[in-house]
Structure formats: structure tokens, C-alpha cells
């Protein structure tokens, strides 16, 4: 018989290294001799979209389009350290460093423009479309190229450093504030359990993810889809087959990961609650999007067949045994 159930799983997750550990990101931005913007950052792209959103942030500060920015990434001989692409920290930590580096460059360019244009102050001076101009009198302007020419051989370069604020928690009591900021996430799933074979199918799913601010909604959806598929595999498929410490499932023939057919359409709800210390309010979601998937699935299984599973992955073999055992217990207790 096939039984359906729904389940919810939710989580809050502290991004960054946390617990008082030094978490530092650095970035450098340069106005090249040709008047082009070059961004140097050691953040690693692992498919999450770091290169895209970090460039978007720089473009936003400097009033140019992303195509106008040359990104130099992942080359340790010329890029400053932006820490690891881990702990869901690049958007928040390195985003902040880039924003600061670009704000510093913008301020430097405004200073030069004020001097060059003979203005009284920097009030009402804007940076946009590769030029610096006075908003109330746009003819008063100087282009990025002209500013670059004024620099001569020595290009204009500014740095941005961001050090995250976290404190070490009390080792005795576990009390304290070891992480900042936190990301919040909720999954709802519907499952169909075959009570004769123990097979579980995820038939519907929805994710509501707090992102602070969606710098790039499409990439966020991609990250949520990826995290969901990974969490689904973690919950019902990926079994190492450990026997006395030996991994028996040591190939993809028996260590199963979900295929496209096993993953249903995921409804994604992006929640924006900007974080004040974050670049444009944006927080990392890389890890958070997979954490609540397995709890939601296990809750849905409980809702469908009334058995509480506390071990993953919940393979058909384990689930069928749990269903049978549950039936026997109820029979003994006289409940059915």
C-alpha cells in the first residue's frame, strides 16, 4: 500500500568560521591605466556563483555594469586572501571586503575629481557610467580614463579588509554568541511510502530560505535546488555500507546519489530580511539549504506510516523493518 505524509524541517545556521576564530577576507580593486576596473580577490568559485555576485557588488558600488569589471580570482600570486569557500561565508565576508575596497576606490576617485574640477566639496558628486560628475551640473565631469591618465604609471589601487565579529563561547557552559550572522531556512516535503517495499518517493517539496538580500535570485534558486538534491540523497540514498570500519559501498554502483528522476520540482520561496552588517544585506546560504531536508523527509515518513526514524540514510530495507517492527509492537500493546 502507498501512504502519503507531509513533514517540515527548519534550521538556523551561523555562517562564517565563528567562535572567535579570525575570519578575515581581503580584496583589492584597481583603476587600470586604461581606466578599467580590475578586481582582485582570492575567493574560490566552486559552482556556487561567488564570481558573479562578488562582481555584481563591485559594479553596484562603482556605478558600472558587471561587464565593465575584470575579475582576477583564485591566483594566489596576485590576489589577496579571501579565506576559504567554506562555512557559507563568501557572500557575507568577502562581499563586505569587496564593498569596502570599491567604496575606498570610489572615494579616491571623487577626491581626485573634486580637485580636478575645482569643486568646493564632494557633496553631490556621483560615480556612474565610468565617470565622476556633479549631480546638479553634469557637465562638470571627469571620466575614469582621465583619472587613470592623471595617475601616470602608478595605478590607483585600494584595499578592503573585513574581519567578522564573533566571540568564543564558554567552553564549560556552551553559552555565548559564537556566530554572526545566522541564516534561517524551512523545508516542507510530501512523501509517498510503499509499505510493502519500503521505497520512499519525494513527491512535492518547498523551501523558504532567508537570504538577507537576494543579490542574484537565479543563483540562489540554483543553490537551493542543489542543496535539496544533496539533502534528499543524504536522507534516503547515500549509504557508505560501513562494516567494521570498512566502506563497502565504494563506487557509484552501490553508493547511490539521486538522479534527475528522483528529485521532484522544488518550490522556492526567497525571504529577504536584510542583515545590517552584510553587504547590501546579503547572507550566505550554501550549507543552510541542505540541512533541513533530511529532518523534513523523516518527519514526512513519520506522518505517512507512523514510524520515527533516527538513522539516515533511511534505505527501503531499514524502513520496511521499522514499519514491520512498529506493527508488531502495536499488536503486542493491543492498540490494533
Amino acid at each position: 500500500m502507498k501512504k502519503r505524509g507531509i513533514g517540515i524541517g527548519s534550521t538556523f545556521y551561523g555562517t562564517g568560521y565563528g567562535n572567535g576564530f579570525p575570519d578575515v577576507s581581503k580584496a583589492i580593486v584597481e583603476l587600470s591605466q586604461e581606466g578599467e576596473i580590475v578586481l582582485y580577490v582570492g575567493a574560490t568559485e566552486v559552482g556556487q556563483g561567488a564570481k558573479t555576485i562578488l562582481t555584481q557588488m563591485a559594479a553596484e558600488v562603482l556605478g558600472v555594469s558587471v561587464e565593465d569589471i575584470t575579475l582576477v580570482c583564485e591566483d594566489t600570486s596576485i590576489t589577496p586572501d579571501a579565506g576559504t569557500a567554506a562555512a557559507s561565508r563568501q557572500t557575507y565576508n568577502t562581499g563586505n571586503a569587496i564593498k569596502r575596497a570599491c567604496e575606498n576606490l570610489r572615494d579616491e576617485m571623487i577626491k581626485i575629481a573634486v580637485k580636478q574640477l575645482g569643486l568646493n566639496s564632494s557633496i553631490g558628486v556621483k560615480v556612474e557610467n565610468k565617470k565622476v560628475y556633479l549631480n546638479i551640473f553634469p557637465d562638470k565631469k571627469v571620466s575614469f580614463k582621465e583619472i587613470a591618465n592623471l595617475q601616470g604609471e602608478e595605478t590607483l589601487k585600494t584595499e578592503g579588509i573585513f574581519t567578522a565579529q564573533t566571540t568564543k563561547m564558554d567552553e564549560e557552559t556552551g553559552q555565548g554568541a559564537p556566530y554572526w550572522p545566522y541564516t534561517f531556512s524551512v523545508y516542507g516535503v510530501e512523501v509517498e511510502v510503499d509499505t510493502e517495499t519500503g521505497l520512499v518517493e519525494i513527491t512535492k517539496a518547498v523551501c523558504a530560505q532567508d537570504v538577507g538580500k537576494a543579490i542574484n535570485p537565479k543563483l540562489i534558486e540554483g543553490q537551493i535546488d542543489g542543496g535539496f538534491a544533496m539533502g534528499l540523497g543524504y536522507a534516503i540514498f547515500e549509504d557508505l555500507g560501513l562494516h567494521n570500519g570498512e566502506i563497502k559501498h565504494n563506487r557509484f554502483t552501490n553508493y547511490l546519489i539521486p538522479t534527475a528522476l528522483d528529485v521532484p520540482d522544488l518550490d522556492k520561496i526567497i525571504i529577504e530580511a536584510p542583515e545590517t552588517t552584510a553587504p547590501y544585506g546579503a547572507k550566505g546560504i550554501g550549507e543552510p539549504v541542505m540541512i533541513a531536508v533530511a529532518p523534513a523527509i523523516l518527519n514526512a515518513i513519520y506522518n505517512a506510516v507512523g514510524v520515527r526514524i533516527t538513522e539516515i540514510p533511511i534505505t527501503p530495507e531499514r524502513l520496511l523493518k521499522a514499519i514491520k517492527d512498529n506493527g508488531k509492537n502495536k499488536l503486542e500493546e493491543g492498540k490494533i
Partner: peptide, 10 residues
Amino acid sequence: KLGLRKSLAI
């Protein structure tokens, strides 16, 4: 057929 997933399953 009972396979452990919907495709590529023994």
C-alpha cells in the same frame, strides 16, 4: 522491478 532509485539502478 524494485530498484533503489528511479534510473541507473540495479
